[in-house]
Each structure stands twice: as structure tokens, then as C-alpha cells.
């Protein structure tokens, strides 16, 4: 740990068919995912209800990543489209709730794209590091 630099806590909702598969691929290829990440495995990114994302922040997360399959690859047909639509609407209420919408991101990942996943996660870590800890209401 380099001094007291802020280490953001990132919660990643990874769909098991693509995102989590990519995470396993990263493990096998010894591509380290940033330690800030805590993965929550889910059946499909379409299963991530907006409540889960808010609960993650309430439980101490500084950033949330919803990672599902690339277009057309969702094992449940359009789960990833559902996730995309939900994120578009959710982002409009985050700022008034005191959450910078930059702290939340939704991506599609190829099941074997370990490097892509690593890049997305570390990119979010840096963005959130710049934003600082998620302010807690009193």
C-alpha cells in the first residue's frame, strides 16, 4: 500500500457466461485483476436489479461495474440489453441521490477477453480513485 492513498472498493456484478468466464480466463492467463474488485457472480446481467447497485453503495462500495455478454451473445437472449436499458435510466437518478454517475459502469465482455476485462476494471478503479470515497450521508 503506497502511503495512505485511497483504495476504492469496487463491486463487480459479473454474468457467469461471459464476464465471469473472462475473469477465470484472466486467472488462467495470470492477468491480475485489481485487488479493489469484489465480484458478485450472477446468472445474467439482466438479473441485476437497480436495487442491488444502490445496496452495493449503501454497503460501502465506491464504484460498481455491471459486466455482461457482448451484443447478441447473452445466454438468455436479451439480458444484456435489459441491463443496458436499466443503467440508462438508473444513471439519471444517481446524482440527486449523492452518487456520481461516473462511479457506475455497464459493459459487455467477450467470454475469453481477459485483457479487456482487466482494462475495464482498472479503468474504473482509476476513475473512482480520482473521485475519492463515495460520500456517506450522515
Amino acid at each position: 500500500m503506497t502511503g495512505t492513498e485511497f483504495e476504492p472498493k469496487i463491486v463487480g456484478f459479473f454474468c457467469q457466461w461471459c464476464a465471469d468466464a473472462a475473469a477465470d480466463a484472466a486467472g488462467r492467463a495470470r492477468i491480475a485483476l485489481p485487488p479493489n474488485l469484489r465480484v458478485v457472480r450472477i446468472m445474467c446481467s439482466g438479473r441485476v436489479a437497480p436495487e442491488f447497485i444502490l445496496q452495493a453503495f449503501a454497503a460501502g462500495a465506491d464504484g460498481v461495474l455491471v459486466a455482461g455478454c457482448l451484443d447478441g451473445n447473452c445466454h438468455y437472449k436479451n439480458g444484456n440489453v435489459t441491463a443496458l436499458k436499466r443503467m440508462a435510466v438508473l444513471k439519471t437518478v444517481l446524482t440527486p441521490l449523492g452518487i456520481d454517475s461516473e462511479r457506475v459502469r455497464r459493459v459487455g465482455i467477450g467470454a475469453d477477453d481477459a485483457k479487456g476485462l482487466a482494462r475495464v476494471v482498472s479503468d474504473l478503479v482509476e476513475t473512482v480513485r480520482r473521485l475519492g470515497p463515495q460520500p456517506r450521508s450522515e
Partner: peptide
């Protein structure tokens, strides 16, 4: 557990687009 989040999920199902930017415009 959160009515606002329930409304977000409900409205999301109505959006007739798949391009992220177009979705953002509808939501805006």
C-alpha cells in the same frame, strides 16, 4: 426495498432502443 429503483426497472422495459446513446437521450 426501494420504490425508486422499482420505477427505474419498470421504465427501462419500455425503452425501444438498444444503442446506449439513444437510450440515454430517451432517459434524459
Amino acid at each position: 426495498s426501494d420504490m425508486g429503483a422499482r420505477v427505474v426497472a419498470m421504465l427501462a422495459t419500455l425503452l425501444d432502443e438498444t444503442d446506449p446513446e439513444k437510450l440515454e437521450n430517451i432517459a434524459a
